[in-house]
Amino acid sequence: MKRFLYISMLFVGGLVWSSCEKVIDVKLDTAPNQMVIEGNITDQNEAQLIKISQSVPYTDQNVFPAVKGAKVIVTDDVGHLWTFDEREPGSYTSAPFKGISGRTYSLKVDASSTEYTASSTMPKRVHLDSLSLKVFTFGGKDVKQLQVHYNDPAAEVNQYRWVMKINNVQTKRVFVGNDRFTNGNSVAELLYYSKDDDNKELLSGDEVQVEMQCIDKAIYNYWFTLSEQTKNGPGGGVTPGNPPSNINHNALGYFSAHTTEKVSYKVK
């Protein structure tokens, strides 16, 4: 019996491995401007801030028009009521008060003849112990990353959000976490940050500030969804959608009652 072996060899003459990026013009739909509400109630004794603005078409400049003349009030579940006044266009602030863990805060905004409502429960505070530096060696080069240390309480479900500022400029990455895998542990959470996001890597001498927020489940879903959607295409990410807001009437944004704690770190 004759046996045939078929072997083929491929010599790629000149493999032009040219992955490339270019800025292109795309045709985009233009949606009418949408109401954007950003409300925060913290556990600090301070003037609390609710910002109301509008979305703009994608091709416009990043200037978001303020929504003026709205009526803004916040109540809690034990009968307090705070009225927010417009100190600057679109920025509504209250007299100083302190949010209390376990209480549910409700927001009511009257703007453009619509009544928007939302509520959020302030979780228990988890203490941010410290920040530390983690150095990876990547291709013979040291890449510096920051870690957050905290002790997750075992008794409850916890969600966290971290806001990182480098030399007072907020990074463009959304950092969120929960205790699905780390319940009750002493946690070292890496705030992975790359040069792609901000055109800047962590360098010696940089002043980094991290704010740790303990957030409720709905707000976690909001930030988590936002953190997931980056790229469009077969290789990248999920089909993007608007993050699920806890505000009604299809408003964009969120209303978050959270604890806050800030720690600074100077990169060595």
Binding site: D29, A31, Q34, E38, S55, Y58, V163, V174, N232, N242
Partner: peptide, 20 residues
């Protein structure tokens, strides 16, 4: 694919608004 139809600011970030 889903392209943004608008954008807005949330949490200090420029975020995209999607419709269909």
């Amino acid at each position: 694919v889903t392209y943004p139809a608008g954008k807005y600011s949330t949490g200090g970030l420029t975020t995209y608004y999607y419709t269909e």
